[in-house]
Design a protein around this nucleic acid. Structure first.
Lengths: 203, 203
DNA sequence: ACTTTGAGTTAACAGTGTAAACTTAACGGT
DNA sequence: ACCGTTAAGTTTACACTGTTAACTCAAAGT
């Protein structure tokens, strides 16, 4: 036939258009300030047409969050370094680069209330946890190879490192680094990447 | 007279009642989900009465944020330990205790958009920065006494420590610690407090 | 006793998310 | 070539939001 194929393709195109418009508007004006009517106007459809593709406003947010995590995971997985410690360093840099290059996604991904979070991760939690598993894998390996101390459980060490990296990203995103002169920004992120590991290295 | 005094007192009482009702509702339902009408209903006044006491909804949020920082500062200032490193450790514990005991305030204080932030800190920025200055003071002292290495600027070290502590608090608040078994929670926070410092200690 | 003041209310507006009813065009089977 | 069905989209409507303007009314000052 091909005609049903075309319909399906058109459906997916519109869904994509909604997501693109929503993402751009969220970036420009923030999630709360964007109404379905604004999205509808941008894609030149009636507001209620969106409900044929998404259950409600939160669901389109959840879809964008999913995309954000996939994007982050893709970039993380491009890191192929044998040494686990160096891999962690590079992972932190990758994480920071993501928050710098896609602040819009990061804001959506980590400034959410619980319901939205579950909506985003209920269907595919594996994607959201892969960034964290990146850390866990490296920590496990570093402990096995003797580069990391083993006086604390791996899960605690992994969470500690994650907290450090996430904290720096969160402060930067919330524009809480106004006390830090611009010329020290790079040194700060490098310091975070290093300090998050140094406490766990042997000697 | 006394009568004008009573009027003034009544004014302040109602303002307090608005703030209390708003805080409780924000805790229960989140900032976005609370309408002025709900607040008004709880204090048994008409919705527009609130506008006689606050310019708009954001201003009542800003007022609560200010209260939150004052509360945090009060608790921080009760720490009177000479040794700067031990003071930092205790400060981190105090910070975590605050997020545990007043998650409602912490959420308001650190999940805000920029305009709200400026509204909250425009009038009194000193209060908001005092928690950070607590860190700076201790780091400066630790560098002077030789307990901390001095191969990085104090401002970078202070931010790094802040990022670590804030990151742990933010993860806990966003309920991102589901991978961490309950029995490891205390160890995690202690690990964060320790790891945030260990990278900067001499030998 | 009269005016002024200020606290509070009612009514209204523009904008929100969302559901239900309606339209319209394209498809599959006869 | 027609017809019924189905899917896509629109119009209309509702209950709710933050906020402004106009109004009421009791107390205070003179």
């Amino acid at each position: 036939m091909g005609s049903t194929d075309r319909r399906k393709r058109e459906r997916e195109n519109l869904q994509r258009a909604i997501l693109d418009a929503a993402r751009d508007l969220f970036v420009e004006q923030g999630f709360a300030a964007v109404s379905l009517r604004k999205i509808a106007e941008r894609i030149e459809y009636s507001p209620t047409a969106i409900y044929l593709y998404f259950k409600d406003k939160n669901e389109i947010l959840a879809a964008l969050i999913g995309e954000g995590f996939e994007l982050l995971c893709t970039q993380m997985h491009q890191i192929q370094i044998e040494d686990p410690v160096e891999r962690l360093r590079q992972g932190a840099r990758c994480y920071f680069a993501f928050t710098r290059n896609h602040p819009q996604y990061y804001a959506l991904m980590f400034e959410l209330c619980d319901e939205d979070f579950e909506k985003a991760f209920g269907p595919k939690p594996e994607s959201g946890m892969q960034a964290f598993n990146f850390i866990r894998g490296a920590v496990t390996q570093a402990m096995a190879s003797g580069e990391f101390r083993t006086d604390q459980p791996e899960i605690v060490v992994s969470h500690t490192i994650w907290a450090h990296i996430h904290g720096a990203a969160a402060l930067a995103l919330a524009r809480r680094l106004t006390m830090l002169p611009e010329e020290h920004h790079a040194a700060f992120f490098e310091s975070v990447a290093e300090a998050s590991l140094r406490g766990f290295l042997v000697n």
